[in-house]
Simulated assay, not measured.
Amino acid sequence: MGGGVDPGTGPVSIPQAGPGQEPGSVSAEAEAVVKSYVDDLTLALAQMEAGSMAAVLEALVLAMREGRRVLVAGNGGSSTAAIHIASDLMAASAAPGGTAPQAVALTENIARVTAIANDYSYDEIFSRQLPGWARPGDVLLLLSVSARSPNLVRAAEVARDLGMTVLAAIGDPGELAPLTDRYVVFGQADYGLTEDLHVALGHMAVRVLGGGDACRYRAAVDG
């Protein structure tokens, strides 16, 4: 998304909001967007199919508890959600004196991703990583809004050939849904809502791994 100023224009002046803003002020507009977004997110949560989400979480958590590897992939905002989820899963599954199951975001090594894109094709940035990481029974979790990204579709195809369990959290069934073992659709294909719920899925998985308990900042709990 571009952020430049049109040629021949000076810097854009943003009105300063203050007490008793007029309806057209930035503050009033921002407040309206906040309320609208909260309403949309609340509706997306209400419309989410809990059974489908639970099925995805069950497969994900079971794999972690069995010591299997979980690989996570997505593009754009979903690429950082993949890193967030993998990091949280590793932290939640680590046990003192034990070896934590591996959770890896296929987006986290930019050198590897760009090398594959440069030498082969962007469509293969995830699929070409799978043979080096995956074992039969491992899990591939795909995050997407459209569920039509060629690199995710290709990854799902290769993962199935490798005997992996393929899961997806998507904003639309697209082309991915038929290639998965389990999937959940949420966020009404809205980029913001779907990507918010990607992270929520990871946090739900962490809570399941923790026995259902909320993970709160200790100082807040201790008072």
Rank of each mutant, 00 (worst) to 15 (best):
V61C: 14
A105G: 06
F126T: 03
V184W: 06
T80C: 13
A32D: 10
C215V: 15
A59W: 00
S25H: 02
D196W: 02
A86L: 07
V12Y: 05
G192W: 00
A82S: 15
E108R: 08
Y191D: 05
G51K: 13
Q21V: 12
P96R: 09
Q188N: 14
M1H: 11
E195Q: 05
V206S: 03
M204V: 04
P173A: 07
L152S: 12
N75Y: 09
P96F: 13
R148C: 09
L43F: 04
P178K: 05
D181N: 10
A115R: 01
A189V: 02
H198P: 04
V34H: 11
G212Y: 04
Q102H: 14
A82K: 04
I83A: 15
M1W: 10
M64F: 04
R65E: 10
S146I: 03
G67I: 06
I85P: 04
G2Q: 07
E175S: 15
R68M: 05
A205Y: 00
R216M: 14
V70W: 08
T42A: 15
R112S: 10
D222G: 05
A55T: 10
A115T: 06
G171F: 06
A159H: 02
E29W: 10
G187V: 08
D172A: 12
A55V: 08
A54E: 14
P7M: 01
S79E: 02
A32L: 10
S127R: 12
R207Q: 14
Y37I: 12
G18E: 11
T114K: 08
M1A: 13
V153W: 02
A73F: 02
R68G: 01
A111N: 02
M1I: 03
M64N: 01
A94W: 15
G67Y: 09
V72Y: 12
V206W: 07
A92Y: 09
A168D: 03
R154T: 10
G20Q: 09
L62I: 08
G76R: 02
R65K: 14
A105S: 15
L130S: 09
G20D: 14
F126L: 08
G77N: 05
R182N: 10
A169R: 07
E124N: 12
S121Y: 04
G223N: 10
V61T: 14
I85M: 09
A189S: 11
G24T: 07
Y122V: 00
M90F: 15
L179T: 11
L176T: 07
L89D: 03
A147G: 05
Q102I: 13
V5P: 00
S13C: 11
Q102D: 06
M90W: 15
D196Q: 11
A94D: 12
G18H: 07
N109D: 14
T107F: 03
V208D: 03
A63Q: 07
R218H: 14
G211A: 03
V34I: 14
A86T: 09
E58P: 00
L152D: 06
G20K: 14
V139Q: 08
A111I: 01
Y183D: 13
G223E: 12
E29N: 11
P101N: 02
R65G: 01
L176E: 07
Y122A: 01
Y217W: 15
R154K: 13
S93K: 04
A147D: 07
A55P: 05
H203W: 00
T114Q: 06
L197T: 03
E49N: 15
N118R: 04
R216S: 14
D119H: 06
V145L: 04
S27V: 05
F186T: 15
S144R: 08
G18W: 05
